[in-house]
Every structure is written in structure tokens, then in C-alpha cells.
Design a protein around this nucleic acid. Sequence first.
DNA 1: ACAAAAAATGTTCTCGAACACACTATTTTT
DNA 2: AAAAATAGTGTGTTCGAGAACATTTTTTGT
Lengths: 346, 346
Amino acid sequence: MKIYTIKDIANLAGVSKGTVDRVLHKRGKVSQKSLEKVNKILKEIDFQPNPIARNLKNNKVYQICVVLPNPEEDIFWEPCIVGINEAIEEFKKFGISIQTYFYSPSSTQSFIDINNDILQTAPDAVLLSPMFYKESLEVTQKYTSAGVIVSTFNNQIDSNQIGSHVGQDLFQSGRVAAKLMDMITNKKSKILIVHIDEAVNNALHMQQKEKGFRNYFEELPSSQYDLLTFNVFQSEIDKSLPDILKSQSNVSGIFVTTSKSYKVVEILKKIDYKDLNIIGYDLLPKNIMYMKNNIINFLINQNAKMQTYISLTYLVEHFLFNKKIPSQKLLPIDIVNSENVESYIH
Amino acid sequence: MKIYTIKDIANLAGVSKGTVDRVLHKRGKVSQKSLEKVNKILKEIDFQPNPIARNLKNNKVYQICVVLPNPEEDIFWEPCIVGINEAIEEFKKFGISIQTYFYSPSSTQSFIDINNDILQTAPDAVLLSPMFYKESLEVTQKYTSAGVIVSTFNNQIDSNQIGSHVGQDLFQSGRVAAKLMDMITNKKSKILIVHIDEAVNNALHMQQKEKGFRNYFEELPSSQYDLLTFNVFQSEIDKSLPDILKSQSNVSGIFVTTSKSYKVVEILKKIDYKDLNIIGYDLLPKNIMYMKNNIINFLINQNAKMQTYISLTYLVEHFLFNKKIPSQKLLPIDIVNSENVESYIH
DNA sequence: ACAAAAAATGTTCTCGAACACACTATTTTT
DNA sequence: AAAAATAGTGTGTTCGAGAACATTTTTTGT
């Protein structure tokens, strides 16, 4: 396998490497004759410039800022920090500098403020997990105007200014949960769809999951379940969830559309409610514990850590090796039970 | 973030970059005084040589050979080709040359011959999926003596001369299958464990999965299943499987320990046998089709493609950037059903 | 026809690490 | 005491791409 260099092409075409460079980068100032000679050679061989040499000359420290909700306010985001730190460690020596910024998931203003701060530092790219739709579009606009690449993970916004989005097909993950629930639950019973969150930030997320969940049963030739949806604020759950359960009879399963299924378990324990099938999201330590105790049946792994890490590698490989950033990457919808959970957290 | 270069260190220590280089590579010929000066600076700053500059100077085309069973003889290996081709395409421009070699899974000699051929070409690394235990140890020994790095994927051999192994915890995957079977199958019935293969090559593989499967039920406080194991040659399955099913009553589930569960489905159809739960391995097109038709309940994804691709990236990153090769990487045990299967094959 | 302007082309330097090579200072050998 | 060996140190070159700079060739205007 011969690896061709610009020098090789120059020799083959009978011109200097300066001319080859001008042809390759379309910098003009090349005669028709030279252009043809070089293009002829380029057509014959599959020239791909050595990304390593290119980067060496580049000699720049790239700044990437990651913006996500504060994990102290929502533990769901905790694994992202791990992914970010791994990326920091791995890419440091390549001249990639990664900074992490938190905003409060309950404060739109904190999101705006932090992005304005970041804008001042003029980074090369920003990786966002945007909870506030309108504001996210606005900051994206600002970043793009300033020549900053914007990528998103976990939460999606609909904009053609997004470099890449890494996430999961939420509708389909709802269908996956439904299929599993259908498989383990008594027919002719009630299934509750429970949205547990503090604010409306996750509304879109939760809605898509619910739609997928319901869609699965709608498509069944004859669904014998009764599906009921409840919105529960995390702060009021101690009271509202028992109320809901008291008001309903013959409930055999609960689908929790956020990572807070452990909350449901803890309340069920308190009121001594048994024999419920529970399907939730995310491999939080408490969720895993209750799944290992066979109280939670399945968890769907949204893999926030991997989402963050992959998003960062896309940006890094783009900066270092000029690799094209994939516009969208949907991670697999991992079905996790007590037996394969360990294989996901190592 | 300041990125220090050898030149920076030389300036700080008041010596030349040649001296710093000698200290860094412990090449001697450095006075005690200079050594101390340089080490003092090195202790103060976290110097990590620019892997890109290092590699550029290296200027070598690395040869990696991948050795696996011929996908024409066993379609299980088909996805590996995709993974290899992706790696070839991606790493070509970095001066990595990857060659693929097939051996016949039913011929030990073909395995030996091919590895001898490869040895002649003096590659930098070999990635093996070894089916023949004893012979694999022998070729590994030969490769290692010749200074060739040996990595394995999918199939493991126990040797301290292996650079890395990428695979799956087979015992645990058996437990995962058992948990799923337990969840969907009528108690007080028979479950068949069926090993379908042409030769004894996969014996270890299949045994470990069976052990895990049985282990799960043994650990249950009271297992009410009857577990029966059958070895079936792929070439005789048309006759032997119907015989087995005729001889057994009250069979409610089949656990197929290889990727050939579609074979089972095709035979069950022929003899019009119904209402069996089937759990198998691998996302072969036929398996997927039967799973989407709700005949196969679950497939466990061994992700042969990913195993190959990851193994190759380990080698490539080692050659290019001096990254340490992880000695073992166990991929997650993906539970796949009709709803999340698409998320794994894209 | 000839200078000036413009176009085309070739040369050289840079990036950081690695190492061959050259040079100086000191010690050892004859 | 002169020559040779050795230790210690610094300099120069290389890798490939890229781009500034220098040089040559062609075109234009008078």
C-alpha cells in the first residue's frame, strides 16, 4: 500500500508542490495546463492528505464548552461528568481544552446567562443539552453568528444550525417499554404512564415517550389494557402518587418516563403496595438497586455518559482530523434488567 | 491551557532540546546536574508529548491482519466484514493497512496454514477470532516470538501473550437469556437448551452460555422448570429437532446458544409446532425477520461487528498515538426485541 | 519593442518529536 | 606531552501539509 503525498503528486504531474497545493485548495493562480496535469494524477490515485501532518501545522488549542443542567439538581446528569472527564483526559495532549458549565434546570435565566458568559470566551464549539426550547434556539443563533459550532446531546432542538445531535429515539423507546410491559403484565388491567419531573422542561421528552408507549398498544390487533397518564411533580410525589393509586383499582404496571422510577418504588414501599410491574429509564444507582431486588422490572438505558462522550469525540475528530461531523447519531435503546445491568456500567 | 513542548522544557531547564530528549527517553549521556534540572521542570509541569508530532516523524505504514472464519461458511461472521471495512476506510489515510484472511471453521489445517502465510508477511499486529484452542495458542506463540502483537475477539484463549481481547461475558449472557425466559414462560414446563453447530469448535462458547442459563435457575429459590440440553448438528437439524420435540411433551421454550435460531423457527414452521418461546443470539437478517414476526421473542446481540471494529481501533490508536491497549473489553449484553432491533443495526 | 503589471510557478519555512550528527570539554591511553 | 577515547551538550534534519515568500514567465499598455 503506497501512501501518496503532495510531493509524490507534484513529481507525477511534473509541477511543484506549491501548484498541487493550489489545486487541492482551489486557491487559483494555476494555469489550465497545470490544473489538468494535476487533476489527471489526482483522478488516478486516491489522495487523502495525511491528517496528522495537517494537524501538526495547525498548531492550535481548541476550546470546547459543555453546557448541561447541574447534576446536583438532577442526578440524571451525573454520568455526563464522567464522560466529559474521560474526554478531557484523553484529548488534553492533542491540544483540546474542554470546559464544563452547569445551569439550573429550573431557571431559564441561568441558561441564558451561562451561554452569554461562554460566548465571551469565544470557544470553537459548544456542546449543549438544551432544556429551554426558545432560548436554546436563540443562543444557537448567537453562537453560529460568532462562528461557534453548536452540537446538542440528549435534548434536541430543531435547527439547521446544529452541527450534530446525539440522542435516542424517544418515541421508539416508548414502544420498547410498551412491548416489555405487554410481555410481563396481566391483560385486562390498568397501566399507568407517570411523568415525574420538577418543571415542564422535560415535557417534550416525556411526551414523545408516552406517544410511543401508547402507539404500540394502539397498533395491537386488540389491546386489553387501560392506559392512564399522570403528571407528578417530584416535590409533591409523596402525596400525589398514593392518591392516584388509591383512586385506581386493578393497576398492574407503571411506566415512568423519566429517570425517577426509584421515587415510585420508595413510595410504593411506604404504602405497602405490591405486585406492580415497573419500567423506567436510566441506570441510576437507586434504580439499579431496586431492579436487582426485582422491584423494577426493566430500565431503558439512555446512556447519558456515552451521549456526551460521543458528542465530544465528533467535535474533537473534526478539529484534529477534519472529519465530518455526523448530523445525527441515535444511540441504541438498551433494554436493561438485573442480569445485564453490570455489563452496561463497567 | 498551555501546552508544553520539548523546546519549552529545554528553555525552562536551561539546556538544549537534545538533552531533554535524552532525559525523556532515558538514553543516558546526561550529567547529574542537567538531569536534575530537567527532572525538576518535568515534575512541575505535566508534560505529554504531542502524539501527532511523534507519529508524523514515525512515518510508517502499519500492517494489521484480521483472521476469522469464512462468513460464507458461517453467516455469523458477516457483520465483521462491515466493521473491518469501516476501519480500513477510516484508518487508511493514517497509514494503517488492514488485510482480511478467512479460514474454514471446519478445518484446523486451514487455520494453521493461513497464520503461517500471515507470519511470512511480518505484520505489526494480528487480530484473531480463534476457534481451535490448542492451535491458537501455538500461532500466538509464534507471532509473539516474531514481535507481532496478537489480539483476539469473540473467542478467547487463555494466554498472557494476548494484547487485548474484545468479547462478551458468555456465562452472564446465558443468565440474561434465562431471566428473560423465566419472565415469559409458563412455570412447570420444559425448557430446551439447544446447541446448534457444525463441529465442536464452538463447544466452549456454547457450554459457557448453558452454564449461565442453568446457573440462573439453580439460584432461584424454587425453579419449576425442567431444563434439557440437546446437541444438534446443523446439517442434521431437519431430522433431529423434530425427533426431539416429538419425544418431549410440555415444552414451552427453547434457548438456542448459537446464532442459528432461525433454523429452529424454520423447522417448527414445517412441523406446525406452535406457542414456543424462543431466545437466541445475534442479529442475523433471518433472526430479525422472525423476531419481528413475534416467533423469536428475544435475541442477545453479541455485536460481532462492534467487537471487530473496537479491536481494530485499539490497535490503531496504539500504533498511531502510543495509547495503551486495554487487555480486556467486554461488550454489553444487549437484549434485543422487535422494538429496539432497528436501533442496533443502524 | 520594452517596461510595467499580472499571472504562474517554485522554494522555503513552520509545526513538535526524534534522532543522527557535530562539537566541546574532560579523561584516559600511549 | 601528544593522541585518542569518552562524556556531555547542542545543532540540524526529517516527517507532510500548508502557506508565505521569491522567482520566473506571460500578458498588457504605450
